[in-house]
Design a protein around this nucleic acid. Structure first.
Lengths: 233, 233
DNA sequence: GCAAAAGTGTTTCTACTACACCCATGG
DNA sequence: CCATGGGTGTAGTAGAAACACTTTTGC
């Protein structure tokens, strides 16, 4: 007899994966379909799942993200747990959980992780069990999300904003390997919710030793091509 | 028949409560005694416990802190979860858990909270089930602590330090209602791990609009009495 | 030649640093 | 009268903010 997979049905992990498309912040969500009263109902959820009986939380988060999206070697950082007894009380969510997991489910405490990734690498979301897509962070407020996932995304963004004040280099996790100063500023202003001055921003960046100019320019734009930079070390 | 208390033996909360005695940072720990091979073994643990089956995490943290220390209405803020499968593998900890809880215990994921409190209010730790005491934060590294509580305390301190950069008013949670600038500076330097200049520090504080001078001086000191201040609004 | 975005300097203001001595009180 | 901690000012420096025009390129 093969080893049976034993789950811990009381604890789950959820991954809030942020990306930046050059203009807006995106978050990675999984499509979910629920058969309800002979109708199919569609909504979205974060990549996440209950953990295995003897599994470390960080490892569980990586495993689940890979299983649901195909993404590997993503740096995930735990930021908060959510455990209100009501978070698993929506009948639609209970139905979906019990169908998917084949387990009776009570209250689940979830441990949430954030990750920042470069959206530009032509990501192929490869998973047999789920379909993942990027969604505008701004649209999340008006979308149908499973459980308390809207709140988790909000808290995740707050966490990122908080952390960027202390570790500004995190921004480069979201940018392509080669980027323009305009892209960097656009990202910077998006997450800080500011509108900084072009000259002051370039002055500031020019003191960042890890941002180095390349001998390359943008291509295929209908205006003066911008210089490309990379983040080094 | 009375309602039976139903626990969720998979999830716990732990509270890292910091205080400041005017000189050093303190952390609140519970005495623990374990009968092991006919000998009594003493160590310390954080105030914490598994949660009830249908209990919100934040409420659980407050409840547990009150039950174990008598402290009420303490603002607790969740900062991190700990869930390595090895954290509940120490035989001494398992023994203690099963004796205390009268439950078979497997792996427990704990959600950790921090609180900052004024040590000066003549705290009486009132609890029938536990004895709480303040310990120097610096001594924690060399003490015997249950589970991974030493790590939890460290991470809690990091969290506080981190947050103080963003919300400096948190310092006043640790000071008595009336305090001297010297006390404030001593606390400030302790948590920031700095030694700031007296004049510069006073200059800085004088720009903090919420720190207001009182018409009162220290009493009972063998030198010039310092002016008292309070934190307002 | 014009639309669209890239790129560039100077001045002002503010916040932090460095630094040394007199003051008030209790014992 | 002396030991102990309380309390004060000035000058220099570094980083942030305000502010407008010229350059390059594709179409």
């Amino acid at each position: 007899m093969a080893n049976e997979i034993i789950y811990n049905p009381h604890v789950s992990v959820d991954c809030v994966v942020f990306g930046f498309d050059g203009e807006k912040l995106k978050v990675l969500l999984i499509e979910r379909t629920i058969a309800e009263n002979n109708e199919l109902f569609n909504d979205k959820k974060l990549p996440g799942s209950i953990i295995l009986a003897d599994e470390d939380l960080d490892k569980a988060a990586s495993r689940v993200l890979t299983e649901l999206t195909g993404l590997k070697n993503i740096y995930l950082s735990q930021f908060r747990s959510f455990g209100g007894p009501d978070r698993t009380k929506n009948p639609r969510d209970i139905l979906w959980l019990e169908n998917t997991m084949q387990l009776k489910i009570g209250r689940i405490v979830t441990v949430a992780y954030v990750a920042l990734i470069k959206i530009d690498r032509k990501i192929q979301f490869k998973s047999e069990i789920a379909q993942a897509n990027w969604y505008d962070l701004n649209d999340v407020a008006t979308m149908n999300l499973a459980f308390d996932h809207a709140e988790i995304i909000n808290k995740g963004m707050q966490h990122i904003r908080h952390n960027l004040d202390i570790e500004p280099y995190l921004l480069f996790e979201l940018l392509p390997r080669k980027f323009t100063i305009t892209q960097l500023q656009s990202l910077y202003d998006t997450v800080h919710q500011t509108r900084s001055d072009v000259r002051n921003f370039r002055k500031k960046v020019s003191q960042w030793p890890h941002v180095v100019a390349l001998d390359e320019l943008e291509e295929g734009v209908a205006h003066r091509a911008a210089r490309l930079y990379k983040y080094k070390k």
